[in-house]
Design a protein around this nucleic acid. Structure first.
Lengths: 112, 112
DNA sequence: CTTATATTCAACACATCAGTTGATCAACGG
DNA sequence: CCGTTGATCAACTGATGTGTTGAATATAAG
């Protein structure tokens, strides 16, 4: 899964909105149409439609065709790319913290 | 690590910018001041200062005091909250896919 | 054919964001 | 004390984002 910088931009930014995160949560339980996704929110269908376009442009979802419906499906691949981006730096930081702690303990030992 | 919806908003949105992601990458290797963080970017120190404020408001970094410097430190806790949010839905989706595959295989068996 | 339903497009308002320049503040060093 | 450095604040600009309403498109159903 090659994910370039622009795609990370779009995917992280897409998740920076509570409506879109709620849509992701809903879609993790199965596909849903625009109307179904719109139901929980006090905004127009048009606004929901654009949120969906944002998620699709970010590669977080895909869409199929079922008559006049356009069901949305969650695509886990980009989500996986996000966690692996985050974990690269989180784990590096935690390793560094552990090294620092080790050094501090060594210094304390020597002070005794 | 209790992370509310607003904090997820701020943290995901903060990572939706390549400058801020590069800062996170830099900080994973150790603390840095505003000037050090600004060095790789063709933007003013003021702009960098505001990116840092965004990261701090998101809880992704913290700052200390060293004379006139204000070193930034990466805080892995919120990063960890982001990966666990993502993985909740990513893993649920992948489990669902596997269940669907199993059903499809069963149907094919019965067709024989 | 006609009407209803699902979705999208277009144009607009309003808010937020990322950048700039210029001024300000606080700590350091001679 | 005074100039320098690190960092921030304030005000402004242009771009982007999120929402609206109204019109358009396409499929479904009577």
């Amino acid at each position: 899964m090659a994910v370039d910088d622009d795609q990370l931009d779009r995917a992280f930014a897409a998740l920076g909105d509570p409506v879109r995160r709620a849509m992701i949560a809903r879609l993790s339980r199965g596909p849903a149409t625009v109307n179904e996704l719109a139901e929980p929110f006090p905004i127009t269908k048009q606004a929901v439609s654009r949120h969906i376009q944002v998620l699709e442009a970010a590669g977080l979802i895909s869409r199929s065709r079922d008559g006049q419906r356009r069901p949305c499906h969650l695509e886990p691949a980009v989500l996986e790319a996000l966690t692996s981006w985050i974990d690269d730096y989180r784990l590096e930081t935690e390793r560094r913290f552990r090294r620092m702690d080790a050094v501090l303990r060594t210094v304390k030992e020597q002070e005794k």
